[in-house]
Amino acid sequence: MNIVITGASSGIGLTIAKHLAHLGHQVVGTSRYKEGAFENFHLLKLDVTDDASVEKFGDQILERLSQIDVLINNAGYVIAGPIENITIEEAKQQLDTNYFGLVRVTQQFLPHFRANNIGKIINICSLAGQIGMPFQAHYSASKYAIEGFTEALRLELAPFNIQVCNINPGDFRTNITANRKTTSQIDPAYLKQYEHFIKIYATEENNGADPQIIADLISSLLYKKKLNVRYTVGKLSQTSSVFFKRFFGEQIFERVLKMMWKIG
């Protein structure tokens, strides 16, 4: 299959791209800063926040592969800080990359998929799209947006035989901890709690699951005729929280989180 994956120069994206290429698929990844032969696949430059860059990338891809079978939207980052302190501009940048970037790339390839009356779009979302993460509110907001987008897109594309789904990973061992951005100023009133949460997040990330699990899951989805709306993946201690929230309700779930995270 011919596969395009955004944000493929590191982390989960790199693991997925390398694995799919190893299985014999023709893989083209993207990076904001790198291009050319990379590992066992090819990278093209792409800035998902720039309309012209996305359009140019779309033309390059179709020249290179002629047909795209699978689009994997993976590009994204995390900005941390109290909601009170994160600027609107910082919030816009977060949403522009994680959500609108995904929308731009998807829009670029939809005419191609429709013309072929087939295709798969796999969006790398997050458990943070189902559970709001303190001090990473705008990251959660961007992932919640992808949830609604994916559900709507599935229904719009059903007549064209185009399958769409979300992958919702918990914490995985990647470079997300080192690459986390922080707002420029943090009010002292929040500092202790903020540092408490960042330490929790870093510990969970550094002891997270192997990204190969996600790559294996995606390789199995390539041949499925019907994709589920979402696939939650990661350590059971994290993925089970989604089912706990649904079963016991949001109020009880919130009380449990407060106890677990020592809030209040």
Rank of each mutant, 00 (worst) to 15 (best):
I68Q: 02
I68Y: 02
I68A: 00
D69C: 06
D69K: 06
V70G: 04
L71T: 07
L71F: 06
I72V: 13
I72P: 03
N73L: 07
N73E: 11
N74V: 13
N74S: 08
A75M: 10
A75K: 10
A80K: 13
G81K: 03
P82L: 13
P82K: 10
I83C: 14
E89G: 03
E90Q: 15
E90Y: 11
E90G: 10
E90W: 12
A91C: 10
Q93R: 11
D96A: 14
N98K: 11
N98T: 08
G101I: 00
G101C: 02
L102F: 03
V103T: 04
V103Y: 12
R104F: 05
V105M: 09
T106C: 07
T106S: 13
T106Y: 08
T106A: 11
Q107T: 07
Q107P: 02
Q107W: 06
Q107A: 05
F109A: 05
P111M: 04
P111F: 05
H112K: 14
F113P: 00
A115F: 00
N117H: 14
I118A: 15
I118T: 15
G119Y: 15
K120I: 11
N123G: 00
N123S: 09
N123L: 12
N123V: 15
I124Y: 07
S126E: 12
S126L: 09
S126F: 06
S126Y: 07
L127W: 01
L127R: 00
L127N: 12
G129S: 06
G129F: 01
I131S: 05
G132H: 00
